[in-house]
Simulated scan of single mutants.
Amino acid sequence: MSAPAVPEPRPPAEALVAVPAPRRPVGRGTSNGNARGNVQDRARRRAWLLATFGDGQTCPCHRCGLTLDDSTITVDRIVPGIEGGTYRRSNIRPACGPCNSEAGARLAHERTHHRLTTGLAP
């Protein structure tokens, strides 16, 4: 019969070091999910855009004119979130995914260009 295993000694409490939680990466400056609302809020917003800018089933993209439906419409904020824009009805318009993404990338480029040329935050 073998001897019972002896557990390793634990380090003293003062030797334990608190490890900080990892920092979340900083995104593009977009709003968090709470500002966008829950699933029902977003569905109501899309339905409102379809009814206001179209016939209730379809509407055109505000930029390229592509016909959008509930599965292809995205919400474009006129005043972007990075500049304090919200998802209020007075600040949203329908856009297709490519146009909405292109606008966000353009705004990010403009902010970077402004910061590099002036040394100031936009």
Rank of each mutant, 00 (worst) to 15 (best):
P60R: 15
G54F: 01
G104H: 03
T112N: 08
A3E: 14
A43C: 08
V6D: 14
N34C: 05
A51I: 13
T52D: 03
M1W: 09
N38P: 03
D69I: 04
I73W: 02
R111V: 00
V26N: 02
P122D: 00
V75F: 10
A121W: 09
L50Y: 00
P80Y: 05
I92R: 01
G65W: 12
Q57G: 13
H113S: 13
T30I: 09
R24Y: 08
N100M: 09
T86M: 01
G37W: 07
R111Q: 01
A51Q: 15
P9T: 09
P11Q: 03
T112P: 00
D70A: 09
Y87S: 08
T118D: 03
V6T: 15
A95W: 03
G81L: 14
I78T: 08
L50V: 00
V19P: 03
H62Y: 10
V19Y: 03
G81N: 15
T30Y: 07
L49Y: 00
R42N: 05
S71Q: 15
T74S: 14
E102W: 11
S71K: 15
C96W: 04
T52I: 06
G56H: 10
L49G: 00
L16Q: 11
G85Q: 07
V19R: 05
S2T: 14
N100K: 07
A103H: 04
L66R: 15
L120S: 07
P9H: 04
G54V: 02
D76S: 11
R77G: 09
S90M: 01
V75M: 09
V39H: 14
G104W: 02
R44A: 05
I92E: 01
D76E: 10
V17Q: 03
H114D: 00
A121I: 08
M1H: 09
G85C: 10
Q57S: 14
I78V: 09
P20D: 13
L120F: 06
L116D: 10
R23H: 08
G29D: 11
C61V: 06
G65Q: 08
A15T: 13
A95N: 06
A13R: 06
G81Y: 12
L49W: 00
R106V: 05
A43W: 12
R10Q: 15
A15Q: 07
G29W: 12
P60H: 14
S101F: 06
S101R: 06
N38Y: 05
T72C: 11
C64V: 13
P122I: 00
T118E: 02
R42Q: 10
P98G: 11
P122Y: 00
E83W: 11
S71I: 07
H113F: 12
R45D: 14
A35F: 07
T52N: 10
W48G: 04
G29F: 09
G29C: 10
C59D: 00
V79Q: 10
F53N: 01
R10I: 15
C59I: 03
A47V: 03
L107D: 11
H62A: 12
V19G: 04
L68D: 01
V17D: 02
R23D: 07
I82G: 05
E8A: 03
P4W: 10
R44N: 13
R106E: 07
G81H: 15
V26C: 02
N32K: 08
V17I: 08
P4C: 08
G97C: 11
G85K: 06
C64I: 14
D41L: 04
C99E: 04
L66F: 13
R23C: 03
S71C: 07
R77V: 12
Q40T: 15
R63L: 14
G37E: 05
A21V: 05
P25T: 14
P60D: 04
T67L: 12
I73N: 01
